[in-house]
Design a protein around this nucleic acid. Structure first.
Lengths: 201, 201
DNA sequence: CGTGGCATGTAAACGGTTACATGATTTA
DNA sequence: TAAATCATGTAACCGTTTACATGCCACG
């Protein structure tokens, strides 16, 4: 296991919520890390196999209460040690990939209105993201447990919120600038239509 | 060509700066898009070949002034059209990958001081990023050209700046919280040493 | 002349997604 | 019983990085 972050995400998830199956891991990762990490089944299931083979997790039968047939896993001591070692390593900066920023940068090359459309869309997605994160925040506050892990979760959540809000603020002013710019451009290209009375056939 | 964003990055770069070689493209992408996109030589050179084969770019001999032997490329009309079509498509959200946030989330599982170390490191990297972006901003302001592309560049730059500053602000308060939390933890684990007079042998 | 950096490339390995296949369980 | 959803998995494909190979040019 060299650069296999999937494995560590699984170890980490099992460290806070034992006895999960592949399916549940996928769901838990989506729900908890959705704003900063993702894994697909195609990564999870093979990783579970190899982690079990290495003795870092072990398969266990589902709790009797659960009716469904499924394979659950839990962390071993070796797995916990391995997770801790990884945590202590410097984190790596993943290569940046933001297609929105790319398309915005090339905005002048695009047809009039395209950049504006992309900004509106990014605002929509970020508002959605903000709602999700605020939902998590509310739930966490209501739970108000003494769980010692919670401060770390709240810090992480706080960064997600801060970044999303910053993006939304930027979007506000970008919309203003762009609508000024691009209506100008449209006026040059296709002069104003007067009042459109008729409509499409 | 289906999901090949490398190709579009190249087309876009050539649309704003014609006659670039693979090496120069790599440098230009690094310098201009460094905060939101990256490409490696292993992607660039093969893409140049296939783009040329499709007629979206064409190879041209270096300007006589340039002494070095190298293959330069420029955009064709077909290439420009292709770029425009891509720009008008909705952008895709790339899967989030932020290893820092992952390690912070698991902070309680790590040895005392580890989370703090990671936050200090992320602050360091973000300060570096901020300096780079502010450098670009300064240069752009001084140039103060009438280039119609510039507003789009400045908007993109503005988002990069906003996100970086938000991350730095968050980091400030995270450092405070964490240093309070983790010194507590250390005190419980290894009670205070008094004044260390002797040192390591 | 030799060394170091510039410049161009390629092959292999890897990480990751997608599409597909399958069966079991719940709900209508 | 039919349809939807839960759950597990696999194979193929694709995008990407990494490591390696190579030759040119400038400079000491």
């Amino acid at each position: 296991m060299k650069n296999n972050r999937t494995a560590y995400v699984i170890l980490g998830m099992l460290s806070i919520q034992p006895n999960l199956s592949g399916y549940e891991l996928h769901k838990a990762i989506e729900e908890n890390f959705g704003s900063f990490w993702g894994e697909s089944y195609g990564q999870i299931y093979p990783s579970l196999k190899s982690l079990a083979a290495e003795g870092l997790i072990k398969a266990c039968q589902p709790t009797p209460s659960s009716k469904k047939r499924r394979q659950e896993y839990s962390l071993t001591d070796a797995g916990r040690t391995c997770l801790r070692e990884w945590l202590a390593q410097p984190f790596q900066n993943d290569p940046p990939r933001n297609e929105f920023m790319l398309k915005l940068f090339f905005g002048h090359e695009a047809a009039p209105g395209v950049a504006l459309m992309h900004v509106r869309e990014v605002q929509r997605r970020n508002r959605q993201m903000l709602a999700t994160l605020e939902g998590i925040e509310t739930m966490a506050r209501e739970a108000q447990s003494e769980n010692p892990k919670k401060p770390y979760w709240m810090l992480t959540l706080g960064l997600g919120l801060a970044l999303t809000r910053a993006a939304l603020d930027w979007g506000e002013s970008a919309l203003e600038q762009l609508s000024a710019m691009e209506t100008e451009k449209v006026q040059k290209t296709q002069p104003s239509e007067g009042k459109p009375v008729a409509n499409q056939a």
